[in-house]
Design a protein around this nucleic acid. Structure first.
Lengths: 224, 224
DNA sequence: CGGCAGTTTGATGTTACTCAATTTAAGTGG
DNA sequence: CCACTTAAATTGAGTAACATCAAACTGCCG
């Protein structure tokens, strides 16, 4: 459930950098701020501590594909443990707090501790599985199915961290983000949401998602 | 360039299983034969030695997304080194020869030899990068762009193994496979090929692809 | 109150899908 | 070598899904 805990071991998330011999430090960013650019190198590995962000692939003509929404505890990508340069760009969705670990330190802990090694391998596999599912959804699913999948996927990831009460949860996304995540235009995303509202499947406004007919949503967006 | 060599070390690819204490053996399959099923477990890790295959995600209603075409030297997926169950299904495109390594043996070699470890990490990252690019293509590209991307991607992968002469190379795919790889119908794939032919960009028949205007193809299908 | 960003709605256009018929290519058996 | 069969590719016509463009509407904040 996130690498953060495993990597930090007994050290608290909130400890200051100077208490930890400089192998860890923190950063913050405002909503909308760019927090990573493709091909940019860094000697640190970043983990999202608080807030929402997303990572994406930017095309030269302005189109972009959102690859993943990042939740607290998510490492930006497990691949950053093994290579300096990001293969993606990233932006903050809300105000965020980011923790930066020295890559050398993580690699050392990885070599020393097999449970860290295993946690990293697991995270890599999770990224591979998620990417394969996303490709399948983008290649094969209709607009309704794609949006249903995205929401279900986010729900399970949120539920693994927080309790979701009454099928309501905060979702700090604009429809533009959803569009860029599922390969549709914002206008069409709006139309699909209006279809969902009419069918009493869900409602989404003011950054809060309310799912009123989960079975129907799963019928649409489940990968089985 | 493929894990096969790294994993085998000094041992020849063609050595018999009984010469290697049983940690490696070979299998063959005919064109079209199923060679892996999702969720199926195995204590072996499979590498394609000869022929073409592909791995895909099968949906219950018959749709499928081809995730990757496998070429000689490709491990089915680096993730199979860490987990028993496949997250994908796979089929042979041509007659194939497959090598199976005991997972325990690979893990042991990984722990003992850091160059093996590094080769595996590299292969994992390659799979992650490819999957992110595929998602971007499926989410953002038009039909022409998708097919151009697929062909360019295949060309670079083939060129890393064989010499491509005169921009001609064998491509043992049906249009149905291309359709399932890029999320189109076979009928539309045929129309796009006919547009490419008319524009003198390429010709594809009898399982041989001839690219006559590579710059134009790259203008369409390059991820930059 | 005015301005701005985001969403919704309508009208229209384009892309790709569906269905069905036709053509092509590759065997197969006489 | 020539019918006959079968799988794959091509073509045409009609349709559905999604995009585009533009206008109207909403909520929010200065």
């Amino acid at each position: 459930m996130g690498l953060c805990g495993t990597l930090l071991g007994a050290v608290s998330e909130d400890s200051k950098a100077d208490q930890n011999s400089g192998w860890q430090h923190f950063a913050a960013a405002r909503a909308g701020e760019q927090i990573a650019i493709r091909n940019q190198g860094s000697s640190d590995v970043f983990v999202l501590c608080a807030g929402w962000a997303f990572r994406y692939f930017q095309l030269s003509d302005g189109r972009r594909q959102i690859l993943q929404f990042l939740l607290p505890g998510d490492i930006f990508s497990p691949t950053t443990i093994f290579e300096k340069a990001f293969y993606f760009s990233a932006k903050a969705l809300t105000e965020v707090r980011i923790s930066a670990f020295a890559r050398s330190e993580i690699r050392a802990r990885c070599a020393a501790n097999s449970s860290v090694q295993w946690a990293i391998a697991k995270a890599c596999m999770e990224e591979v599985h998620d990417a394969a599912r996303l490709s399948t959804v983008l290649g094969q699913f209709s607009a309704q199915e794609r949006i249903a999948y995205l929401l279900l996927h986010l729900m399970t990831r949120i539920a693994a961290r927080n309790v979701i009460r009454e099928q309501r949860f905060p979702l700090p996304l604009r429809q533009q983000h959803i569009a860029d995540a599922v390969g549709l235009t914002p206008v069409h995303v709006s139309r699909v949401f209006s279809q969902f509202r009419k069918r009493r499947i869900l409602a989404f406004s003011d950054g809060v998602m309310t799912v009123s007919n989960l079975p129907e949503l799963e019928k649409l967006g489940s990968l089985r």
